[in-house]
């Protein structure tokens, strides 16, 4: 069976001089929870943007359900996005609405369901993340972990086939972190969704995901199941899993030798 989400040799850059992804190939089978990992700024979020069609690859193809995202016209793209949920890095809850209205938002925008039905559906989603009691609160009244769970409930509001998580663990305390992690796993299995998780939190990911891709400098440098990753001797994987300072990923940002720069004004290049 063909994978549900597929990136085939994708190259992408916001402008011609700076490529962010160069020749990425990855496949996510239906019903699986796959993590895309890598250091900050390596292009993980860009992968998600390509999948939901906010950007188009310069080269290669992004296919979801066998269809190329870049080739979709406006209506098809809107339909594609309606079948997909996305959890943003800091939740991106609408700050001027209550928790209830936040989760009802996609339902009200995209369905003609009567208000009582929406009411029940919203409470169901909130119940799934354990926050039914917060329905009337504003997002500003929630803790970071709760806000993330509300955002999770909103991203599954329309029962999507595919959910994209952009750094779902960023800025969470260890308890909230494992709560969110367990929720992602449970929702994936219970609702039969396919999930892609972009994160740099290796320990939590190893616990919950089915498969892991490592990206560095725009390429897939390692991949495998959690067991394989734990046992891997690949220097990049080892550095990432063990959190070493220097290794294949350099501590220093590329620069001329220190001796050449001393005494020279900032910005002068030789």
């Amino acid at each position: 069976m063909a994978p549900f989400v597929e990136l085939a040799d994708v190259t992408f850059g916001y402008n011609a001089s700076r490529t962010i992804l160069s020749g990425i190939t990855l496949a996510v089978p239906r019903g699986k929870l796959v993590a895309v990992m890598g250091g900050s700024g390596c292009g993980k979020t860009t992968v998600l943007r390509l999948i939901c069609g906010q950007h188009k690859p310069s080269l290669g193809e992004v296919r979801v359900g066998g269809r190329s995202v870049a080739a979709m016209n406006r209506e098809e793209l809107q339909a594609h996005r309606r079948r997909l949920g996305m959890l943003f890095q800091f939740g991106a809850l609408f700050t001027d609405m209550t928790v209830f209205d936040n989760i009802a938002f996609p339902m009200r925008e995209h369905t003609a369901l009567p208000e009582p039905v929406i009411h029940d559906m919203v409470l169901m989603k909130l119940n799934a993340v354990g926050l039914r009691g917060t329905a009337e609160l504003k997002p500003s009244e929630l803790s970071g972990g709760m806000a993330r769970r509300v955002a999770l409930a909103r991203s599954i509001a329309l029962d999507p086939e595919l959910v994209l998580y952009d750094e779902p663990f960023a800025g969470l305390d260890p308890i909230s972190l494992s709560v969110v992690g367990q929720l992602i796993r449970k929702l994936n299995d219970a609702l039969g969704m396919t999930s892609i998780l972009v994160t740099h939190d290796i320990q939590e990911s190893l616990k919950i995901v089915d498969y892991i891709y490592f990206i560095s400098e725009g390429r897939v440098v390692a991949e495998g199941t959690p067991e394989a990753i734990r046992a891997s001797s690949d220097p990049f994987v080892r550095q990432f899993v063990d959190g070493e300072i220097d290794g294949p990923v350099r501590f220093h940002y590329p620069a001329p030798p220190l001796a050449a720069q001393f005494g020279a004004p900032v910005g002068a290049r030789h």
């Binding site: 939901c52 996305m86 943003f88 800091f90 991106a92 609408f94 700050t95 996609p106 925008e109 995209h110």
Partner: peptide, 16 residues
């Protein structure tokens, strides 16, 4: 602020 906190991007991804 909605742009900064990705609320606009979230809407876009929700096909709104």
């Amino acid at each position: 602020l909605m742009k900064t906190t990705e609320q606009l991007a979230a809407m876009e991804v929700m096909a709104v």
